Computed example of a mutant assay.
Amino acid sequence: MKFKAALLHVIVIAGLAMTSAAGASARTLQLVGFGDSLMAGYQLPPAQSYTAQLEAALKAKGLDVAITNAGVSGDTTAGGLSRIDWSVPDGTDAVILELGANDALRGVSPDDTKKNLDAMLSRLKDRKIPVLLMGMMAPPNMGGDYGARFNAIYGSLAEEYGVPLYPFFLDGVVTQRGLQLQDGMHPNADGVGVMVEKSLPAVEQFLKGLSSAN
């Protein structure tokens, strides 16, 4: 009887362990898309924003993720820095960080833009939240010197913090009028789809790294 009781106890413990492991592996990854109007989905229905379309694309590939849209139209890196602590809640598994376009449009000093992005990366690192950094490029009308200084920010910070970099968030859209709203600056729903398609491999690789780390 004692042997049977002990055996039953072992079986129950093993079953609980397997259930716990299955629950852990099935946990939904909680991501935050943190950025400006390009992340928020300016003038688009919520379901057509970058975060919504990216979440759908990842789920279609069998990945269990939920992406919170923390994009604020018009946000600069200074604005992002002022809200990053409360816009990225505890329990966030990773952040897709996209900011800087409005800095360039307003002619903000690249030194200030870099300082703000640096501070955001530092705060997220202190909280042990991995980051995928989305690069941005200055518009040509800002001049060659400004563009060179601004465009170098993202690669420099990615190297410094050891975070993956997607070089240009608007890749494939910025010069395509058919993929933009009438303002010629923001992507339409199809444009967002192109952005998701082009960035998807980088996001998948990023998430694969998270799984390996865990």
Rank of each mutant, 00 (worst) to 15 (best):
F3R: 14
F3Q: 13
A6I: 14
L7D: 00
L7W: 04
L8Q: 05
V10A: 15
V12C: 11
I13T: 12
A14K: 02
T19G: 15
S20R: 08
A21Q: 14
A24K: 13
L29P: 03
Q30W: 02
L31D: 13
V32G: 10
V32R: 09
G33I: 10
G33N: 14
G33P: 11
G33S: 15
G33V: 10
G35I: 15
D36S: 15
S37V: 14
L38K: 11
M39K: 06
G41P: 12
G41D: 13
Q43Y: 06
Q43M: 13
L44R: 11
L44H: 11
P46D: 13
A47P: 00
Q48P: 00
S49Q: 10
T51P: 15
Q53W: 04
A56E: 07
K61L: 02
D64K: 12
A66K: 13
A66H: 13
T68Q: 14
G71V: 09
S73K: 03
G74F: 09
G74M: 09
D75G: 02
A78L: 03
A78C: 00
L81Y: 03
S82R: 11
R83W: 08
W86D: 05
W86T: 04
D90T: 13
G91V: 01
T92M: 06
T92E: 06
D93S: 10
V95T: 07
I96H: 02
A101T: 15
A101H: 02
N102W: 03
D103C: 02
L105I: 02
R106C: 01
S109T: 06
D111V: 12
T113E: 08
K115R: 15
K115E: 06
N116A: 01
N116M: 01
N116Q: 07
L117P: 01
L117D: 01
L117K: 01
M120W: 00
M120P: 00
L124C: 02
K125P: 00
K128H: 14
V131H: 02
M134Q: 11
M134R: 01
G135I: 05
G135A: 06
M136W: 00
M136F: 00
P139Y: 06
P139H: 07
P140W: 02
M142I: 01
D145Q: 13
F150G: 07
N151I: 04
A152I: 05
I153A: 11
Y154D: 10
E160M: 12
L165P: 09
L165E: 12
L170V: 07
G172C: 08
G172K: 09
G172P: 07
V173W: 11
V173K: 10
V174E: 14
G178T: 04
L179Q: 04
L179H: 04
L181D: 07
L181M: 14
Q182N: 11
D183H: 07
M185H: 01
P187F: 05
N188R: 04
V192H: 08
G193L: 08
V194Q: 08
V196S: 09
K198E: 03
K198T: 07
F206P: 05
L207D: 05
L207K: 05
G209F: 03
A213N: 05
A213K: 14
N214R: 15
